[in-house]
Design a protein around this nucleic acid. Sequence first.
DNA 1: ATCTTTATTGCAACCGGTTGCAAGGAATCT
DNA 2: AGATTCCTTGCAACCGGTTGCAATAAAGAT
Lengths: 332, 332
Amino acid sequence: MTVTLKDVAERAGVSRSAVSRTFTEGASVSVKTRRKVEKAAEELGYSPNALASSLTTGRTKLIGLISNNFHNPLFLQVFDLFTRSLQDRGLRPLLVNLTDETDPANSLRLLRQYSVDGVIVASSTLSPEFSLAFHKARIPVVHSFGKFATAPRVHVVGIDNIECGRMAARTLIARGYRKVAFLGGPAKATSTMDRRAGFFEVVGAHETVTATESFATAYSFDAGRSEMLDLIRNGPAEAYFCGDDVVAVGALSALQENGLRVPEDVGIIGLNDMDMSRWQNINLTTIRQPVREIIDSSIEIVMAMLDAPDRHPEARLFACEIIERGTLRPLR
Amino acid sequence: MTVTLKDVAERAGVSRSAVSRTFTEGASVSVKTRRKVEKAAEELGYSPNALASSLTTGRTKLIGLISNNFHNPLFLQVFDLFTRSLQDRGLRPLLVNLTDETDPANSLRLLRQYSVDGVIVASSTLSPEFSLAFHKARIPVVHSFGKFATAPRVHVVGIDNIECGRMAARTLIARGYRKVAFLGGPAKATSTMDRRAGFFEVVGAHETVTATESFATAYSFDAGRSEMLDLIRNGPAEAYFCGDDVVAVGALSALQENGLRVPEDVGIIGLNDMDMSRWQNINLTTIRQPVREIIDSSIEIVMAMLDAPDRHPEARLFACEIIERGTLRPLR
DNA sequence: ATCTTTATTGCAACCGGTTGCAAGGAATCT
DNA sequence: AGATTCCTTGCAACCGGTTGCAATAAAGAT
């Protein structure tokens, strides 16, 4: 049925080793035999079995890509970039969809069964312990979009959520907003809590500024909208920092439905700069997360770990950037 | 380093076969040895190497998931559902991102190297020939969201795009629109051409109705918006059937920016019912594609083919449904 | 208690490759 | 031409499992 090394060897009239060697980078084969082998391989339509070779080489070129953010529009870009970058480097993404699972046990067992060379955990909501489980199992792992730690126990690359919170607060204050508010994602998400902390740190240093807070039940449009609907009932603040773009758009929608003008009556700033935020009929002012840089950096680390698995865990942080659009009044 | 079958066998004081058998469904092992083996495996933290076993069983439980639609928001749902459904059935998705590639040769070689048990091509823009390449290589394949054919040469499951076009036309006409238009995606996409055909078939049967057509350069917001901007300059039609939701939202945005009210001045109907379409500040009337059904059905077929690879190619079509929202004037 | 039948087990070969090693051949040097 | 070095090549063992087969043990039948 399938063509194997042996078939090619017989046809080319050489040993199996010779065939194997023509297909392995840097092995010693003469041009003459190489040609014979390539000819035979071509004629038979042979392509080497990566799984079988992994048995002896210990390399599968398989990278586990774990995520639980399948509903966040930002992850369209994330999946696109990860899969492209991985395959450009000759690696194959084996996708694991966690949905609501937070225990690494299953994923660990699964990915170990498939002998993945490394694992990328792409999630802003999973705890560092999740990734740590892979580290302990001595599988190279990097946590992308994960929580920053000064003494990280596993490689993490992402943004400084606290600094994002500060940035948002400064931006609102600079535009003259005095009654500001934080509208986070779920209160138990560390990303939300960090963004909140940075926000209140800056706000607290300004006596003339008052701030309130509330939390959407999820990083979703509906949760953002329904939370803002509640807030409107009690009289909304002058401007909101939303912990996520999709929450921000939900809030935006609630405001518009209630005849409140943005940015005239209420200002909104989001976080992520998902694809839809630049749509002119949304036009959300937001804090851009440098997705491409985070992903490239993550892959760079995971690749380096393939050769040096004991590399010391490192936290890489990327700066975010305010994207000025239409949901905040201009600087005076 | 890694625990193997042999280690477990030695520890449990049995042969390697015995260990293998306790981990294979339906093999003959006595309770006594099974217990010994399980104990030893537990203590050593053993989990079988799926890749090694695939060598003899010929099954990897790997399914290649090929797509080129990483920018379409609909595909967030598609990836979520596919990955979940596959792993619920004990299969693992190996993702292939095609981007702009249309030649199956690379993907075929790659997926063959990894001995995938089957392949799912999830794309509305790839040609049937693409999937056919896998079929010819005798790899079970199903084309999801693919082009319908009365005599399909490969399994295809999706919607009847021609019927969708008819549906859209009927819907517009029933609402009293007389100057209607088709705003498709790229003119070379078969999905667009089919939707167009159905649309004009119905429109052509109504003497009082006039129709025009134009094509966005891509299935994207920007393409939809820029095309509509052009159309507005020459005086827009009364209502548009857009070949994709994201194109529709682009068009919507262009209309709003030009002070044209939707649905009062211009009506819009999209296709897909992507997640954002139900956002209240978008509120797009559209034709829903039954994504979950298509995916379940695709997986069902691919699983059936694992046991019966020579199953006769079949085309499965699912009915679409109009989702009434706010971008079309109500039925009179 | 003896003869069948059935269940369990280990042996050894195999799945599709890789690789250390030693032997043979070609090329280089003197 | 003879000695030395370097390159190629095949052999055989191995990677981590599975499985047909024969041997043995257990169970059932008479």
